[in-house]
Design a protein around this nucleic acid. Structure first.
Lengths: 117, 117
DNA sequence: TGTATTGTGTACTACATACTACACAGTAAG
DNA sequence: CTTACTGTGTAGTATGTAGTACACAATACA
């Protein structure tokens, strides 16, 4: 199970091969956090950082923020807010679609988007 | 904006009119928490309790747990888990359906459920 | 060979979360 | 009247979250 720290370390080192400014220290500086802290995060010595920091990291590493948040065991506060406004509706939606294959879900979502409701 | 505390106090007192065992102290005991704490929660002197306690409270007050969690600004860890497993898919789903009316969303969910995928 | 940069170890901190423990005054019931 | 039960005030706690500050040894650069 590829953890959050391992994932971002691998991704950072991948980018670093082509751009030396992806050193741990430089990335930490861009994030506005201490290098020692980022080091511990990457080695999973501490829990993943805050949502804000994860989202900034996603930007820097050119990754999907929802994916990084998921690896950190979190869900974007934007999505939480959507559910929070209609909890019964989206509770049912998520539980019903839990096991459905991606394609079926996407097809149907696009029907609603393009639909005449 | 009807807060979490106000909502559960009103609901508890409503039930109490027909059943004296819905006193604050009795309910606190059933929940396994201190009465003084429940008192503060109901008067919104402190933040809403943990997910576990909210879910137990939903059971006792015969309310939808997702709705109580939403009032507390939270989302069930069960739903978080569903999103966490396919963050891009469900991120797109929620953002696409954010503004759609309930009926349109439900129609679509039922199509997937009854569909032959 | 210096010096600049790298990642990491140790120690500490501020704030939030989720409560407990107990005393107290008011109300209700027998 | 007194005993039981009610809700609430005060004070304190354990654990988690999200980091900082600084020193250090190893490596890379000029």
């Amino acid at each position: 199970m590829n953890g959050f720290g391992t994932f971002i370390r691998d991704r950072r080192e991948e980018l670093r091969r082509e751009d030396a400014s992806f050193s741990l220290r430089k990335v930490a500086e861009r994030l506005g956090i201490e290098p020692s802290y980022l080091s511990k995060v990457e080695r999973e010595e501490v829990a993943p950082p805050s949502e804000r920091t994860i989202v900034n990291l996603a930007e820097i590493l050119d990754q999907d923020p929802d994916v990084l948040l998921a690896l950190a065991g979190k869900v974007s506060s934007e999505l939480v807010e959507i559910i929070r406004k209609r909890p019964r509706l989206f509770g049912e939606v998520l539980r019903e679609l839990r096991e459905a294959p991606d394609q079926a879900v996407l097809r149907v979502v696009r029907e609603v988007r393009d639909g005449e409701w």
